[in-house]
Design a protein around this nucleic acid. Sequence first.
RNA 1: GUGAGCGUAGCUCAGCUGGUUAGAGCACCGGUCUGUGGAACCGGGGGUCGUGGGUUCAAGUCCCAUCGCUCACCCCA
Length: 423
Amino acid sequence: MAVVTRAVKGTHDLFREDLAYHRTLLNAARRWLEAAGADEIATPIFEFSEVFERGVGASSDIVQKEMFTFTDRGGRALALRPEGTAGVVRAYLEHGMKVWPQPVRLWYAGPMFRAERPQKGRQRQFHQFGYEVLGAGEPELDAEAVALSYWILRGVGLNRLSLKVGSVGDREDRERYNAYLRELLTPHTARLSEDSQRRLETNPMRILDSKAEPDRKLLEELKVRPMLDFLGPEAKAHFEAVQERLRRLNVPYEIDPTIVRGLDYYARTAWELHHELLGAQSALGGGGRYDGLAELLGGPPVPGVGWAVGVERTVLAMKAEGLSPAPEPPLDLYIVALAAELVPEALRAASRFWPELRVQYGVKPRKPGKALQEAERKGARFAGLLGPDEAASGRLTVKHLRTGEQRTLDIEEVKEWVRGGGS
RNA sequence: GUGAGCGUAGCUCAGCUGGUUAGAGCACCGGUCUGUGGAACCGGGGGUCGUGGGUUCAAGUCCCAUCGCUCACCCCA
C-alpha cells in the first residue's frame, strides 16, 4: 500500500463510534469542570522545548526520549506538547493571572504527543483533558481535584476504578528518602534488575514500582520503609488533611505508599486512577500537587494542583465495561428526487430546512421504493419524496418511517411536522 | 530502544500435506420492483495474497530479507 494512504505510526483517525465515545467523555468532563467553576483554556500544541525541559524535568523520560522536537526557521527549539500542565502554568504566568481572584481554576482538552512505541492504551498522538488549580495550596483544593477526576469517570458509568492516593512529600523529604534507598539497596546492587541498577543512580524511588521479579523479591526481603514514613511535619499534616476531606466527600480511595511520579514537578499529593479491566496501561489518569513548577519556568512561586485523564484509555475502559457512547441525533429527513431533473430541487428543498433540522438529500434519482430504502439506511426519521407532482405544487411527500404515516405538505408544514416528531 | 506474534477484498475470515482463471459472509452498486421501505432472490464492481528476493515444473502456501500492524518490556495518559 502506498505510504500516503496510511496515518503515521501511533496516530489514528477518529470518526463515528470512536469519536462518539470521545465526545461523550469530553461532554461529561466539561459539565463537571465548568460546574466547579473552571475556565476553559486552549494553549498551543507546541511550545518552546524549554517549557517542557524545565517544567517536566530534563531528566525525565518524557523529555529525554519521548518528545517530538523540531526547529523553526528562526532556529528556535520547539516541541509538540507531551502533556498539558507546563503549558497551562506558562500561560498563567504570561498573562498575569495572579491578579485574578485566587485560586484560578482552569481546564483544557486536546491532543498530546509522545514518541513512544505504540501498544494498547498508548499512542504517539493521544488526547487528554485536565484540570489545574493555581494560586492556592489548601488541602481542600487537592481533595476537590481528586474528587472531580474520580466523579467524571464515575459519571460516564465506569465502575471498576481504583483510586490510589499517596504523597511524594516535599523536595527535602524526597532527597532524604532517596538517600535512604541508596544506602539500603547499594549493598545489593548485583541482585537488582539492570533497569533498577540504573534507577539506583537516577531516581531510586522508581525501583519501588518495578515489575521485575528479582526487584520485587529483594524489596520484600529488605522490608523497605515507604516514602510516607519520610514526610516532614508539614507534608504529613497536608496529606492527612487531604485524606480527611476525601472521606468527607465520600470518595473511596486507597493509600498507595509506592506511588511515584514520572514528572519531576510534583510535590506532596499524588494520585492515580486505574481501571481493573485494562492491560498493561491501566492508568486512566493521574495528578498531583506541583508547587515548584512556576518557579522552574522562571516565575514567582505559585502553588498548583492538577490532573490529566487519557481519553483513549478511558474509552477502552468504557468499552471493557460495555458502556455505549451517548447516541448521536439521527438525520431528521432524507429527501430523494424521483427523476434526474428534480435533483437540483431536492438540494433547494433540503437547504430550506438548514440549520434548524438535520436534512440530507440524495444526489441520484430513485424510484420510490429505493428512495425509502435509502432513507432507512441513512438512519433518517422521515423520508421526503420529490416527484413531478410535488415539484409542480412546491410541496414534498413526507413519510414517517417508523409509523408509516405519510403527508404531502409544503416546506413550512413539513418543518412543523418533522420538528414535532411526526405526531 | 528491546522481545514476541500476525499481515489474503472496505470489514470479519476460509484457502487441507505447495497443484487449474484466489473464495465466502457483511458492506457497496444494480435488477426482479415505472409513486411506496426494512425481506428474499439474481447479478456486478472491488485483490499486484504487505513488499522484494530465493527454492520448485509449479508459491497465498516453503525459506530469507524488508516494511507494516499488534501485544509486552521500559515508561506513562
